[in-house]
Design a protein around this nucleic acid. Sequence first.
DNA 1: CCCCAGTCCTGCGGGC
DNA 2: TGCCCGCAGGACTGGG
Length: 292
Amino acid sequence: MPELPEVETMRRGVDCVVGSRIDSIERPPCPRKPISIKPAFGKLRRRIVGQRIERTGRAGKRVVLWLESGDALLFEPRMTGLVLLVDPPTEEHLRLRLRLSGGKTKPRNPKELLYWDRRGLGNVHLLSAKAFQQAYGLQKLGPDALDISAEEFAERLGNSSRMIKVALLDQKAVAGIGNLYAAEILHVAGIHPERQCHRMSTKQWEALTAATHAVLAEAIKYEGSTLNDGTYRNALNKQGGYQNEHRVYNRAGQACPRCGGEILRKVHTQRSTFFCNRCQTKRGAILVAQVE
DNA sequence: CCCCAGTCCTGCGGGC
DNA sequence: TGCCCGCAGGACTGGG
């Protein structure tokens, strides 16, 4: 589930590792299939041990640690991965442990950085700066959803016949939006999820852009969404709070908080979509995006 | 190129 | 009480 707000919360949580040096990396004993690590563990270890962490970043739904060598160490949590500074939820799903030294003492001086992943769909990749550009440049990964403009949105998706809900999940078009926030964003924008991209008006692209920025910024403020399975945590193993603010996600059968209509669930490209059938209109009036 | 179905993975909850 | 199966959705692959 981690989407942009959760990954950005993780990044902010581990930002205090900047200035630290990586003393060692270990793979804790794990009875399960190991997560994907590239390059192979031994080579990755040789390239990162002894390196100072210069800064943190985010590439779509990946946390990036930039090393003094210029290499980028990427953590991609996919569904159930966590980047942590403290003890993980369970020992058995702990996949990597980086031991750190030096670095800042405020707000805290982390001694280790952990990668934990229950389902193990996530991965850890080390890329040179050049390889990073090739893999995550604007050709491969769209503009970040926090920054994208209405013009960029329209330029990248305006000719597509896809439904807007499906297109929002395309990381090449816009980076960072997943199934949960696509539903929330479209509800705030007042746009029906089945609206085809090439039928969207300029005003709708503007409403979509405003809703995207507003919903994601609000979700970051709440430190992301921890769903019923309780998996998602920030770097200090604390739950997010945005799940209590969801307008439509996982709320099929309940009343729309804006108009009182019934929230529906439909499946598009094998993913659940939640929306209000009354105030998210396929055509007609565009509602003003309102985020409290 | 564009688009979509299938795939991986684990834990949970519904049905029986 | 236990078993089975469907579902959750990140990103990638292959095929139409």
